[in-house]
Amino acid sequence: MIEHSIPATQAVVTLDVALPGIVWGWIITMNMWAKSIGTGVLFVGFYLLKKYHSDEKIQAIKMPLVMISIIFIHIFLLFTVLDLHQMFRFWHIFFYPHWTSAITVGAWIVTILVGVLFIMAGAKYFNRDSIYDSFFPLAVILAIPVTLYTAGIMAESTARELWQMPTEMVQMTLSATLVGSATLLLIGNNSFSDEAKRDLAIVMGLSAFVAFLLYMGEYIFGSMKAEEVGAVLQAVKEGGAYSSMFWVGQTLAYLVPAFLVFLSVTNKSYGTMPLASVSALAGLWLVKHVWLIIPQLLPMS
């Protein structure tokens, strides 16, 4: 039970419509997860390519990087459209845009980003690196609102108090840097220098650590500020499926990678980074899923 009735009244709801159930389910989790990878590789990849501009092995990731971004942004778009109850009306967003909606703003910017990514892929394919390089900063700039607009949608979801701005904005950014660095650690595992791996590991470890702190802050202090947040967090605190999923997610996404990164950086040995990366990628899905679902368990009427 997540309600807080007044004992003296013994108030029991004896007739109300059933809750609509989970309206945004695993399809939206897929959407957020894939988007984090698609934009995260751009953020972290940009840093890597700039810092190691004369390292051939790092420069060799230009094509894989843009392809990974294109693939995951398209997975994100596919699941976005799949979740629409009227998916063949998706074009309405372009012909009847309503600019107060974060959904609209995000859809437009991600469309431009996809165009830029295709230009970069084409430039690389025809060995026109100068075009690739000149479009990369634009892609990174566009990837920022693409990463953040889901936080905007959550902020506009007035009914779900758990999703607060600017916390969600920071969480979305950290999700992107976490899985962006994890993905690049996986693709560069056999070729990157230890120095590059160390950089990526530090980005991943710090992202994991700070994201974990934010979730714990909400877990411990959230209910002290808002009745609804407290009621929602009961779903995690009382045990049950979402409680297990929450803690497994936190462990895989944040604790395991942060711990392995700490060990790797102190020992200067990066053999466990593939494991840490897979853990971060799998864990983030669970973390996002629980956070998406639990506010939807709250009765609104």
């Binding site: 609509p20 309206v23 629409l84 109850h85 009227q86 998706f90 309405h92 506009e156 979801s157 609104m300």
Partner: peptide
Amino acid sequence: DRCIGCAGCIMACPYGAIYM
């Protein structure tokens, strides 16, 4: 006829007033 069924409104309405 305009609605695309994104359910954003269901997530936004604090009163549970909207249904699909």
